[in-house]
Simulated assay, not measured.
Amino acid sequence: MLNLKNISFSYAGREKIFDNIDLQIDTSLITAIAGRNGTGKTTLTRLIMGLVKAKAGTVELDGKIISDMPSYTLAKYIGYVFQNPDHQLFASTVYEETAYAPSKLGMNAEQIKKNVSQALADTGLSTKQNFMPQTLSLGDKQRLSIASSLAAAPKLLILDEPTSGQDCRERTVLLRLMRKLNKEGIGIILVTHDMDILAEHADRVVVLADKKIAFNGTPRGLFADTEKTTAFGLELPEAARISNEIGLGLCLTPRELYKKLAERRKSNDSK
């Protein structure tokens, strides 16, 4: 479990972004963080990662207080993938980039090689280990950022708008990777403005609004209340919008919508 207790935060000279919030996240799940622009989605993940420090309160992971740890120490527990991968890629080759974190954490050469090979295999980058990171596509850069985190063997991976600017194929590859990693035991915190991704892939949703946790529950629980969703500044997923308009009830994904349409057609044909 990841626990944020009585967290308050503001940037210097600005009003509070969070005011005495409490949040518990099950790190075995995929948890999406959503909310209007400016509600602190990225700031919340940076607080968890130790990139910024809370004015008050603590962050705990599995009962251990981590809010006082430096971010480089936290890398062995939590991986962080920035929205723009160019902000964190610096090495000369894909292999060197992936090996950086485990080497700084003191792993021996054999363990580093093993972790890097596994991370590159998991992210589909094994054949590009000698490439310069700057020459990769945006999708490959995102997966390299993930590989760099995975090589440190974290328990939790934070992804900040990971599909932003990617084409359909790259987006699909990354989302499949995210689910694969979660099934293998790595918790995922996903910051996203894409409600279709949230509805299809998240197990839990945390919505930020008015300096607090405005919602913490399942995607179905969120989107079942259209007025609440709108009040949070969020749109309904496309499948939910269509299913509501044609009287099918709440469908979160295209697959669910198609299934309901087939059931309706079968019911009409039998009459």
Rank of each mutant, 00 (worst) to 15 (best):
M69N: 02
G50L: 15
E97Q: 09
Q88E: 11
K55H: 12
M107P: 00
K104I: 14
Y100K: 02
M132P: 11
N130S: 15
D68N: 13
V59L: 08
I112C: 00
K64G: 10
K53A: 06
T123V: 12
I65T: 15
A119Y: 04
V59Y: 08
Q88L: 07
D68W: 03
V116H: 05
K113Y: 06
P70D: 14
L120I: 03
G124Q: 06
G40K: 13
T93N: 04
N115Y: 01
N37K: 12
S71I: 10
E97N: 09
L61S: 06
L44I: 13
Q134C: 03
A54T: 06
S67Q: 06
A56S: 15
N108K: 11
L47R: 02
P70T: 07
I112D: 00
M132H: 08
L105I: 09
S117A: 15
L89W: 03
P85D: 03
P85Q: 03
A54Y: 05
V52H: 07
K104G: 12
S92Q: 14
I66V: 14
V52K: 02
L120K: 07
I66S: 02
A99S: 07
V116C: 04
Q129S: 10
N37G: 10
A121H: 04
A99Y: 04
E60F: 07
L47T: 07
T43H: 13
T127D: 14
S103K: 15
